[in-house]
């Protein structure tokens, strides 16, 4: 088995043109993603965390070809996604699938579960008739549903069951990479645990890699091997899980971690807290230099002028900060 990355993102930027109204002048573009470089190894889970609007979904969408990057390169199992024609993209999609936050929105309400799960296989001519039905039954079983569920419609399932259906469909083509954008955020805690167990179990059995987007750091710590922290369209820190949670370095990572309450009252009440002031700046007016300097407790004059690059540290972390 090769150890080439299943995903290689190189200096990707996604800028959206600002909406100009009749009266309003056209503003600067929204820099949703602004120069991101990362890679995921086969069978690995990379977590992508950061506040709302920092560009997590935009980057995820770019990886599966739903959004066209302004610049940069995205390779899935060695094949270039950026600028790929529809045929090439179809071939790439075999290797990369996506799971969205809201299972209700990602299933066609007029298709049975069996039709939804079987569709990618049928469309590609991989299976039909009895073979297709059998494959669908196997997929449903692998996500903890029963073969007879194939005849039901999405509304006859709970949220957690619907997310299982979405996962079954994503895995049908045996992709090397599944992009999961907040896959458990819409689910209740008890159901969330079932889906997380399922994702881990499928990874062990099938060797699939995940790009796992979440704002829930406890979930990320549980399921990810490495974690990338994003702020205003850029990565500020990338590190193996234990390094990131054991020795976070970027002031934003520290603030983010201290802001997430630990489900343990004794611990939570003795923790040191860093309460960030102010809100996330608009991605159409990204601050100069380090984008975090306007909220950073450690910012100096240098930070407003010079953008720090992601540089490696002794323990394997990559950090973009002048002072960390």
């Amino acid at each position: 088995m090769s150890t080439d990355p299943v995903l290689a993102v190189d200096d990707v930027a996604v800028h959206f043109a600002a909406r100009g109204g009749l009266l309003a002048p056209k503003g600067p573009p929204v820099r949703a993603v602004d120069g991101v470089t990362l890679a995921i190894a086969p069978g690995e889970t990379l977590g992508l965390v950061g506040e709302s609007g920092c560009g997590k979904s935009t980057l995820s969408n770019a990886v599966v070809g739903l959004v066209k990057p302004t610049r940069g390169s995205i390779k899935v199992a060695g094949q270039e996604v950026v600028g790929a024609d529809p045929d090439a993209l179809r071939a790439i999609r075999r290797n990369v699938q996506m799971i969205f936050q809201d299972p209700a929105l990602s299933l066609n309400p007029r298709m049975t579960i069996g039709e939804s799960v079987g569709e990618p296989l049928r469309v590609r001519g991989i299976a039909s008739g009895a073979a297709l039905r059998e494959r669908v039954a196997t997929l449903l079983t692998s996500v903890g549903l029963r073969p007879e569920h194939a005849a039901r419609y999405p509304h006859q399932f709970s949220g957690g069951q619907r997310q299982r259906v979405v996962i079954a469909r994503a895995l049908g083509l045996e992709p090397a990479l599944v992009v999961c954008d907040e896959p458990v955020s819409a689910l209740d805690v008890s159901v969330r645990a079932q889906i997380l167990n399922l994702l881990v179990d499928l990874q062990r059995r099938m060797g699939v890699a995940y790009l796992f987007v979440s704002h829930d750091l406890a979930v990320v710590r549980h399921i990810c091997d490495r974690v990338a922290v994003m702020y205003l369209g850029r990565l500020v820190e990338v590190a193996p899980r234990d390094t990131l949670f054991g020795a976070p370095k970027h002031p934003y990572t520290l603030a983010l971690m201290s802001a997430v309450p630990e489900p343990d009252p004794v611990r939570q009440r003795t923790r040191q807290r860093i309460v960030l002031q102010g809100d996330l700046p608009s991605p159409s007016r990204v601050p100069t230099g380090c984008a975090f300097h306007t909220r950073c407790p450690r910012a100096t004059a240098l930070c407003a002028q010079e953008r720090p690059a992601l540089t490696p540290r002794d323990d394997g972390a990559l950090v973009a900060c002048h002072h960390a």
Partner: peptide
């Protein structure tokens, strides 16, 4: 008890099977 056990906590080994209801 089961609700608390299903939340990933610091003292749980990563990727270990979480308790479910």
């Amino acid at each position: 008890a089961m609700l608390l056990a299903s939340v990933p906590r610091l003292d749980v080994v990563p990727k270990a099977v979480l308790a479910t209801i």
